[in-house]
Design a protein around this nucleic acid. Structure first.
Lengths: 239, 239
DNA sequence: CGGATGGGGAGAGCAGTGCTCTCGCTTGAG
DNA sequence: CTCAAGCGAGAGCACTGCTCTCCCCATCCG
């Protein structure tokens, strides 16, 4: 079985190894140019030039510019995902309660966004390729949300979460959402969590995209306060 | 005085008249192509071609593609601004209380976004031109926020708004924000409003940019519920 | 061991882009 | 009536994404 299937984890030969290395080099250089000038100005030819290749050679690795961008999008989702996951793991290892864990994860997402503004814009700004995200992105895209779900799950298992009941129009929808990706949470919490996740991204986007420019000055304090209210909104008691 | 200064409101001659008409025609066609294919694919040459001009002629009206986009951004801010303003005016004329007014305005912003997705992406998605928005946009950009401020102001003057006190780190900042653009509101309300406005845009962006795709199905009910919670968050009591 | 195979780089080329410059025509102001 | 200013047309430059062809050489099979 190991011999017949192409082994996925170990590199098979020099050929595959080279291909993986070149692919990684292309993505690295693309990420560098993305950070420097933004997605709109990311040019395949410039990436190839910087790598000492000719532009057509690059099409052996990515069938189009949009596919390269999609690869960067997936990497960005994974990057912010591990940022959130490690923040939560650190917080958990320090024995933190759900509320400080929630605040730590939100802060980690914001810190990642501030450190990688163009990658953040790639995944949470306007969708640049076609119009709807490719299917490959839905897995990595939910990593951060899963961290938040985990926090609320352990909070619920711990001392219980209680929120006002849902309006009738939303009850079955909240049950479906809970069954789909948040098993174990009360449906009101699931609904509140999804909204809170969108709202968190709204807060970060406003800061990053300049909407807070002549409005909010003390960004850290403002964000901390807003995230605390968000925690309250999903049922994490305010101490 | 009327003779020496160039009169601004009335059209002076055929020359100016033609210039205004052509400028409007360019923006209209650009908006059409923006709606059809998005900002990334908006091409000056295509706009000129559709208008029966040659591309260089277009530079008599807009010094660059980015300036054209900036003009579209300003128009989009104004467009969503009047949508919010008329929704509030209608609501107010029907004798609605602050909370239903808040809900009506939020719904109007969402409806505008769903009707003009690419224009929405232009103003609340990733900033497409340089990196920070030009100064001409800060006025139109605040129209929607001003409507929300107006609602909260009348709610406060009516029966009063009360929110939990601010943390010390945010108190002076909230005072400054209040003095800058929300005179008359309690500082806690100002801070909550700014956050709520960003969060509202987060909710709409997630829906519009596909982040809710395999997550939220009943979009209307979900949004209505979230906006109700947002109203509660800024101090508008739940009935 | 040797020849077929196919992966991958190089180069030319096509259609399209933003933007500049120059050349005329037209029109409105003095 | 004259003349400068406004404006459209066209050519052209540097760049883009993408395709196609050519050719080399590492790999695999007999």
């Amino acid at each position: 079985m190991y011999g017949t299937l192409t082994c996925m984890s170990t590199v098979r030969g020099a050929r595959e190894r080279a291909r993986l290395e070149v692919t990684a080099a292309i993505k690295d250089e693309a990420r560098r140019r993305l950070a420097a000038e933004g997605a709109a100005k990311l040019s395949l030819r410039a990436v190839a030039r910087e790598l000492g290749m000719v532009s057509s050679a690059l099409y052996r690795y990515f069938p189009s510019r949009d596919e390269l961008l999609t690869a960067l999008i997936i990497d960005a989702y994974d990057s912010v995902g591990v940022a959130a996951e490690t923040a939560d793991a650190v917080s958990l290892a320090a024995g933190a309660a759900p509320r400080p864990r929630w605040i730590a994860v939100c802060g980690a997402v914001r810190a990642w966004a501030l450190a990688h503004p163009h990658e953040y814009a790639l995944i949470y700004g306007s969708p640049v390729p076609g119009y709807s995200a490719p299917a490959d992105t839905i897995g990595p895209a939910s990593r951060v949300a899963n961290v938040l779900i985990g926090i609320l799950r352990s909070a619920h298992e711990g001392r219980g979460l209680s929120l006002p009941p849902l309006p009738a129009a939303l009850r079955s929808e909240a049950d479906r959402m809970t069954a789909d990706f948040a098993l174990g949470l009360p449906p009101e919490v699931t609904a509140a969590l999804v909204a809170a996740w969108a709202q968190l991204v709204g807060l970060i986007s406003f800061e990053l995209f300049g909407q807070f420019n002549r409005v909010v000055e003390e960004r850290d304090a403002f964000f901390a306060h807003a995230v605390g209210r968000l925690a309250h909104e999903v049922g994490l008691p305010a101490v």
